[in-house]
Amino acid sequence: MAVSKKVNTIIFWILQFVGWGFLTFANVWSKAFVVPEEKSKASYFIVEGLVFIILGIGLTTLLRNYLKRIKFIEHQTKSNYLKTIIAFFVTSFLFSFLLIVISSNAFTYINEKPSDFSMLVFISTTVNITIFIFFWIVIYVAVKSVARNQRNKIDRLKLEASLKESQLNTLKGQLNPHFMFNSLNNIRGLMLEDVNKARDMLTRLSEMLRYSLNMNKVDAIQIAQELEIVDNYIELSKIQLEDRLHYEQEVDASLLQIKIPPMVLQMLIENAIKHGISTQKDGGKIKLIITDNTQEIILQVNNTGYLKTNTDSTRIGLDNIKKRLELLYGNEADFILKEVNNEVQAIIKIPVK
């Protein structure tokens, strides 16, 4: 990604210098050699050419940065179109005004006589500059749009090409074999104490296994269905942890039908239990919070304990989550892991589709 951005930046600057350099050469050539009445010293045309190319490259680079800041390519809304039109006219007027003012003063200084720049010259210059800036915007947006479409196609191809490998990795990350082994041993011990509860736990374990296998075929699942698996996981974990594990959830009911990547919540809960609650003598509390804002679904799992990311198993679990989010959402999703007041917070922000 970093290499691609560097290449794109280099290409942008090459095109900037080539494009504005050509226009500068054409402008200077037409005035110095083609139009005979343009009587002036050669040094003036050099100065005017330098001013023209500096303003052209400088102002359009600022315009490009502004288009990137408002994310015009990604979000071509009415609001962004209006902002772009305003920026277009401001850039064109500023370009023309600075060019006329600087060139006029340079002409007077170099030729030692007053310039004859009139309102007609200003208007014609403004019209020409406006046309140049317009075509610059059209070409820039077209190139960026094509590049973005190509990038999206490549990302989709990468996602499809890595599907089989991703399915295997997802299986490993979704339902930990050690968890299954421990659960079966715990259920076997539970049979001696409570047969009905042991039967219920076996049902929960089989539902988790079936869910894990089926979810390899889809990229998204409703939050309501995901919460059922989380409940199963919590109940199975309580067989071993008993009163050491306290679980709460705070879920906005209006979000239950929203779709998220399968097993992501379960993986967050598993990480909180494995590296948080189970390592503490007195156990602790896990709280699942699901909310939203105008643009994102926020999945948050808090657990009492301290942040420890130096173990291989922790990194594997976190890398699994990050990789899946990147494949599905690119740079639009965020995964944050932090420690706040002796509590570890794992937060995933997913864009609303």
Score class of each variant (00 low, 15 high):
His75Gly: 06
Ile298Ser: 09
Gln225Thr: 13
Leu209Trp: 08
Ile14Val: 15
Lys285Ile: 07
Ile139Asn: 03
Leu159Gln: 07
Ile229Cys: 15
Leu299Trp: 04
Glu160His: 05
Phe122Ala: 05
Arg156Asn: 14
Glu235Asn: 15
Leu171Phe: 05
Leu209Glu: 09
Ala147Val: 04
Ser145Gln: 11
Val138Tyr: 09
Lys353Met: 13
Glu226Trp: 01
Ile277Pro: 00
Gln240Thr: 14
Asp282Cys: 01
Leu50Phe: 12
Asn232Ser: 15
Trp20Pro: 00
Lys83Pro: 04
Glu235Ala: 15
Val51Trp: 03
Phe93Thr: 10
Ile289Gly: 05
Thr9Gly: 08
Thr279Leu: 00
Leu236His: 01
Asp194Val: 02
Ala346Trp: 02
Ser313Lys: 04
Ala26Thr: 04
Ile137Val: 09
Phe22Tyr: 13
Ile187Arg: 06
Val230Arg: 03
Ile321Tyr: 02
Ala346Tyr: 10
Leu67Lys: 09
Ala198Pro: 05
Arg64Trp: 11
Asp334Arg: 13
Glu250His: 14
Ile139Trp: 03
Ile53Asp: 00
Glu207Tyr: 06
Glu242Ala: 15
Ile316Leu: 14
Glu74Val: 04
Ile85Asp: 03
Val121Ala: 12
Phe335Pro: 06
Leu288Val: 15
Lys6Asp: 10
Ile348Thr: 12
Phe134Tyr: 06
Asn214Tyr: 10
Gln76Pro: 08
Gln76Leu: 14
Thr314Gly: 03
Asn302His: 07
Lys308Arg: 13
Ile223Arg: 07
Gln76Ile: 10
Gly276Ala: 00
Leu318Asn: 12
Asn216Trp: 02
Leu99Gln: 11
Gln222His: 12
Asn152Phe: 08
Glu242Gly: 03
Lys197Met: 10
Ile347Trp: 08
Ala198Leu: 07
Thr126Val: 03
Gln295Arg: 14
Val35Met: 14
Ile85Gln: 05
Asp282Pro: 00
Leu245Cys: 02
Phe117Gly: 07
Ile70Arg: 05
Asn310Thr: 03
Gln150Asn: 14
Lys68Leu: 14
Asn152Met: 12
Thr311Asp: 08
Phe132Trp: 10
Thr170Pro: 00
Leu202Thr: 12
Glu296Lys: 15
Ser313Pro: 00
Arg324Met: 04
Gln222Phe: 08
Met119Asn: 09
Ser118Leu: 08
Lys172Cys: 04
Leu307Asn: 02
Met215Ala: 12
Met191Gln: 08
Ile221Arg: 09
Leu63Ser: 04
Leu205Lys: 02
Lys78Tyr: 11
Asp282Arg: 08
Met119Arg: 11
Lys281Glu: 02
Phe135Thr: 03
Gln76Trp: 13
Ile347Asp: 04
Phe12Leu: 06
Asn111Leu: 06
Glu235Phe: 10
Val143Ser: 06
Asn169Leu: 09
Thr170Cys: 01
Ser145Ile: 06
Leu120Thr: 12
Ile239Arg: 05
Val34Asp: 11
Thr304Leu: 01
Lys285Pro: 05
Thr126Asp: 04
Glu332Lys: 15
Thr311Trp: 00
Trp29Arg: 07
Ala42Phe: 13
Ile229Ser: 15
Ala161Gln: 07
Ile290Thr: 09
Lys68Met: 11
Leu318Thr: 08
Leu159Phe: 10
Met1Gly: 12
Lys323Cys: 01
Gln266Phe: 01
Ser4Trp: 13
